[in-house]
Computed example of a mutant assay.
Amino acid sequence: MQQEDGKSRRPSLSLPILRTSRHQHRAGTLTLGNLLTALGESSFGWAIVVFSLLTLLPLPPGSTLLTALPLLVTTAQMVLGYPHVKLPRCLANLRLDPTKLRRTVLRLRPVTRRLERMLVPRYRALFAQRHERALGLVMFIIAFALFLPVPLSGWFPAISLFIIGVGIVEQDGLVCGLGLALGVMSVVLTVTILASVAIGADALIH
């Protein structure tokens, strides 16, 4: 029973983002860079979590051409062996809409609740420095699939990157692996859609 009580008191994954964004909004300092710094700028995990949330904001179609850029920058830095995230000034100074951010975080509660029940530090070898570049490369490919304005496919790579980021933050290799598997599936889906569109266009031309 005590173990169950301990699990019920586990901090929510959403709480740090909601609390920090609310505080910074009241202070008039809510920017992408400030939010990330408050959560832990040295953490690639928090960067992936926050940036994947950006791609899930209620924005016009095709917005992933812009919102996926921080994910591409971050994952590329992992591939290049950067010790921590270094955002270009134009991205760091990007102002966030606190209402849209809150709605997006709350919309993901069904996902985060399930993750909170299973998160445990395990299989930490996945996060060893020697694996960081390979992990970054896989995430870069997933982020590139998200970057492409392909109809119906954007949610899947964004959710998978969110799960990967949570796994990195919590040092849970199993959850991170689940996110990677979903990410690979989302890449396959994107490639399939692109191939179908190409075949359809070729059929119309000929």
Rank of each mutant, 00 (worst) to 15 (best):
L57G: 00
L71H: 05
L56Q: 07
H84I: 00
F51V: 00
F51L: 03
Y82S: 15
T67Y: 01
V85E: 03
Y82M: 11
V50I: 15
T74E: 03
P60Y: 14
P70T: 04
T55R: 03
G45R: 08
L56V: 00
F44P: 10
S63W: 09
A76C: 02
H84L: 09
L65I: 12
L57P: 01
L65T: 13
P58K: 09
A76Q: 13
S42M: 00
A68H: 03
T55D: 12
L59C: 07
L65S: 10
S52N: 09
T75P: 04
V85A: 08
V49H: 10
V49Q: 08
G45M: 01
Q77M: 12
L71C: 02
A68Y: 02
S43I: 13
V50D: 06
Y82A: 15
L53K: 12
L56N: 00
V79N: 03
M78T: 03
T67G: 07
A68Q: 01
F51W: 02
P83G: 14
G45Y: 09
I48W: 00
M78H: 01
S63A: 14
G45Q: 09
A76V: 04
F51D: 00
S43L: 08
T55W: 01
G81C: 12
A47S: 14
T75R: 12
A68M: 04
T64A: 07
H84A: 13
L54V: 10
S52P: 11
P60N: 05
T55M: 00
L59T: 13
L57F: 05
L69M: 15
S52L: 09
K86Q: 09
P70L: 05
F44I: 05
A76R: 14
T74L: 03
K86F: 09
V79H: 01
F51P: 00
L66F: 14
P58Q: 13
T75Q: 08
L59F: 08
K86V: 10
L66V: 15
L56Y: 00
P83E: 13
P61I: 05
V85I: 11
L65V: 14
P83W: 15
G62P: 14
L69W: 12
V85N: 07
L72F: 07
I48T: 15
F51H: 02
V73D: 01
S43N: 08
L54G: 10
L54N: 06
Y82C: 07
L54P: 11
S52Q: 12
G45N: 10
L59D: 04
G45K: 08
F51N: 02
V49D: 06
P61R: 05
